[in-house]
């Protein structure tokens, strides 16, 4: 982590502004960086991922595209192989179905297939997550799918400072990076939000290395390992349980690829009790992978069977009551923590 500004900063930003600040700083520093996607220009991104960038950088670098995700993500791949540093935005992760081929067969494989001779230094930004009744095609997280497919890094910030630092790292990375921002962490004025979505963000050059988890809250009785908006929920639960004298650690993975398995092991070695919270689907995904990270190495660390709190294997429902029954919300997280505590 590099920080060139003076410490003890107090400036607070919401996550979207922190993300945009990193993009702007990288664009100022490197003329090869450009951003393209649907409604990223005058609108500033449907989820405020590019607010104000058009004004500073103009339409030649902040580029509204036709609704041709295969076309413009593939364009980014080709521009990256020619040495540019494109950032392509897939408006919702749910839309991966129309363009996945360019993502997993091209963006993610060219470096490997070329034996390391051709780099694809691009960022694919995409909005994820539910909680606001957008239904089954606009509420998915899907990071487990991206993480399953080799060749792309997958970063998923939960906090404003990380949103900035991980974006800077993603743009500078010589490998393709999928940068997945949950709509619920952006701090949007038109969506329910956790107060943690506005926080201190370092000014100036600020890079958070990809692949390092952060201990969002230290604790000794149980570990909640999670990512994205669920970090906020987990912290809420940990605060509540602290009133009962329970000490709950919250580990924010921050990236799924690379996955900081060491940090998971270190936390479980300390607490012996693991709850994995994932807003993605339950089976074949992050929650199983995190449990396996411990089970593969030292299953004796578990003093209780690990618990998984994820979306049961159903599409995300529309009706609020059903959606909140499916999402890993506070009540389910708290119940899982109580289960591992026995």
């Amino acid at each position: 982590m590099t920080m060139t500004e003076t410490p003890a900063q107090t400036r607070r930003l919401n996550t979207s502004k922190a993300m945009v600040e990193a993009i702007a700083q990288e664009m100022r520093a490197n003329p090869e960086v450009f951003y393209l996607g649907e409604d990223v220009g005058a609108y500033g991104g449907i989820f405020s991922s590019t607010t104000g960038l058009l004004d500073e950088f103009g339409p030649s670098r902040i580029i509204d595209t036709p609704i041709s995700e295969t076309g413009f993500i593939g364009l980014a791949v080709g521009a990256a192989t020619e040495g540019m540093r494109p950032i392509a935005e897939l408006m919702f992760a749910d839309f991966m179905g129309v363009c996945l081929d360019q993502i997993y067969n091209h963006m993610a494989k060219i470096h490997f297939e070329s034996g390391g001779n051709v780099k694809v230094p691009m960022v694919l930004t995409t909005a994820t997550g539910g909680g606001y009744s957008d239904g089954a095609q606009h509420s998915q997280c899907l990071w487990g799918m991206f993480a399953h497919l080799p060749g792309m890094k997958v970063v998923v910030p939960s906090m404003p400072a990380d949103a900035k630092g991980l974006m800077a790292a993603a743009i500078r990375d010589d490998s393709p990076v999928v940068y997945m921002f949950h709509k619920g962490v952006m701090g949007l004025p038109w969506m329910a939000k956790n107060p943690r979505t506005t926080d201190v963000v370092p000014e100036g050059d600020y890079v958070v290395p990809i692949g390092k988890a952060a201990v969002a809250r230290e604790g000794t009785d149980a570990s909640i390992v999670t990512i994205s908006l669920s970090v906020h929920h987990a912290l809420d639960v940990a605060e509540k349980l602290a009133e009962e004298g329970l000490s709950i650690e919250v580990l924010d993975l921050r990236s799924l690829v690379p996955l900081d398995r060491e940090a998971v092991l270190a936390s479980v070695a300390k607490t012996g009790r693991l709850v994995v919270v994932d807003e993605d689907y339950h089976s074949f995904g992050m929650s199983g992978e995190v449990v396996a990270s411990v089970a593969d190495v030292d299953p004796g660390l578990f003093r209780a069977p690990p618990q998984r709190v994820a979306v049961p294997d159903i599409p995300i429902p529309y009706a609020h009551a059903l959606e909140y029954a499916a999402l890993p919300r506070h009540d389910r997280i708290e119940a899982a923590v109580r289960t591992v505590l026995g």
Binding site: I73, G74, L75, V77, G78, A79, M84, P86, Q102, H106
Partner: peptide, 9 residues
């Protein structure tokens, strides 16, 4: 699509 990107660059 990747040809578009090379041409763009």
């Amino acid at each position: 699509p990747p040809a578009l990107g090379a041409a763009f660059a």
